[in-house]
Amino acid sequence: MKLDDAPVPNPVVVLREESDDWAILFNPDTSAAVGTNPVGVEIWKQADGTRSLRDIAATVARRFSNVPEGASGEVLSFADELARDGFFGVAEGAEG
């Protein structure tokens, strides 16, 4: 994925917020599961097909004191991982 891409969550994916610091994204079609922390949960919740990864990274940096402003690389690699496992698609023609 690229920073200007606006990821679209696969609607079949289930977000299980298991505790304050732990969640699982589960794709029942493939059995794939990704464990994640509250930052990953925020990225997942922000992704609605209209927000670009650049915008999402900025929001995450604002909301989490432990995420530095230049963390877009980490957001990108998390989004890549989710796209690879079928959790994310990309909105056609999204401007970001």
């Binding site: 299980r16 298991e18 505790s19 699982i24 990704v34 464990g35 994640t36 922390n37 990953g40 998390f78």
Partner: peptide, 21 residues
């Protein structure tokens, strides 16, 4: 942000919010 193996941590003493199975 992700941690593929940590999912097992709930098998310990921590009570997760809802059952998985």
């Amino acid at each position: 942000m992700s941690d593929g193996e940590k999912g097992g941590s709930a098998h310990g003493m921590r009570v997760i919010r809802t059952p998985r199975y």
